[in-house]
């Protein structure tokens, strides 16, 4: 029981960490608070579901398809919708408000399209639905695969950002957006790429989620919220912070669901959020900023 819960918690936490990393890229580097983030996730879940149920396509192939689609979609959204807002806004606060409002509208558009195409029912499909024995506990294989994928994608992103010149440029923009151009970084391009990369991660997260969880067209909001909480817990822009905060959140949620009540998971998440806001608003691992 305990081991099963622990692994289920790690799986959920790994997924949260993965999607939160995407959001921390979008918010930490591009400075866009994207409220439609969860809808990108769920759209990818629907893609995996549709491909799996209609054409019997393996979700792993959907993953390879979804990542570039998420990248292109977010790239276009940034270029068409958010870039004009960035250009228009005079202060960081004005941009924050504008981007929140615009992406709030986008949330309803994407949700509406998904409702129209798939309806409002709970959706799931069966993939690798057999048990694997780990430390005497039986764990569904699809969950294990989800954990491995989340860790691999998250680790890959971490290496990309810390070990390549390109990633260093992105991080430079995150730290000092106005100084980055002085050393020859095209800040506009970096910001757009970061936003698109975040979208690609969201799409990956969506496919991973669809492998082992049921979802509906309206669950995106919950994912956005949890990802935001993870981002704040870990410290905005901090990838390792997002990873550990995501794992903590997933473990807490699973243990509360197993040992207390499944109806109180969100309350537990909010309690953690409240605690973070009261005691460490800059995040568990964040230094005091500004």
């Amino acid at each position: 029981m305990f081991v099963t819960t622990l692994i289920a918690g790690l799986v959920l936490g790994g997924t949260y960490a993965l999607v939160a990393m995407g959001l921390t890229l979008q918010y930490g580097i591009s400075r866009i608070m994207n409220l439609a983030y969860g809808e990108t996730i769920i759209a990818a879940s629907f893609l995996a579901y549709a491909l799996s149920s209609s054409f019997n396509i393996n979700p792993l192939i959907s993953l390879v398809l979804a990542a570039p689609l998420g990248f292109v979609f977010s790239y276009l959204i940034y270029g068409l919708m958010l870039r004009p807002l960035v250009a228009r806004s005079k202060t960081a606060m004005a941009l924050e408000i504008d981007s929140i409002l615009a992406t709030f509208g986008l949330l309803f558009v994407i949700q509406g399209v998904m409702l129209l195409m798939f309806g409002g029912n709970y959706i799931s499909y069966s993939y690798m639905n057999f048990g694997v024995d780990i430390f005497g506990a039986s764990v569904a294989a699809n969950r294990l695969l989800a954990l491995v994928l989340a860790l691999a994608l998250g680790g890959g992103l971490y290496l990309l950002l810390t070990r390549t010149l390109w990633g260093t440029a992105l991080r430079a923009v995150a730290v000092a957006p106005s100084s980055a151009p002085l050393v020859g970084i095209d800040a506009n391009r970096a910001v757009r790429l970061a936003f698109a990369l975040g979208g690609a991660l969201a799409a990956c997260g969506g496919v991973v989620i669809s492998m082992y969880q049921t979802f509906t067209a309206t669950t995106g909001v919950v994912f956005t919220m949890k990802a935001l909480i993870v981002v704040i817990m870990g410290g905005v822009g901090n990838l390792l912070g997002a990873l550990s905060a995501g794992l903590i959140l997933g473990l807490v949620e699973t243990f509360v669901a197993t040992y207390v009540s499944p109806g109180l998971t969100l309350a537990a998440v909010y309690l953690i959020f409240l605690g973070i806001l009261l005691w460490r608003p800059s995040g568990l691992f964040g230094k005091a900023r500004r």
Partner: peptide, 20 residues
């Protein structure tokens, strides 16, 4: 009724852009 939330969202984005 089926396109309600799409139209709402588009209208919303339009307002944010045109009439800030």
């Amino acid at each position: 009724p089926n396109h309600y939330s799409i139209l709402l969202g588009l209208l919303f984005i339009l307002i944010v852009f045109a009439l800030p």
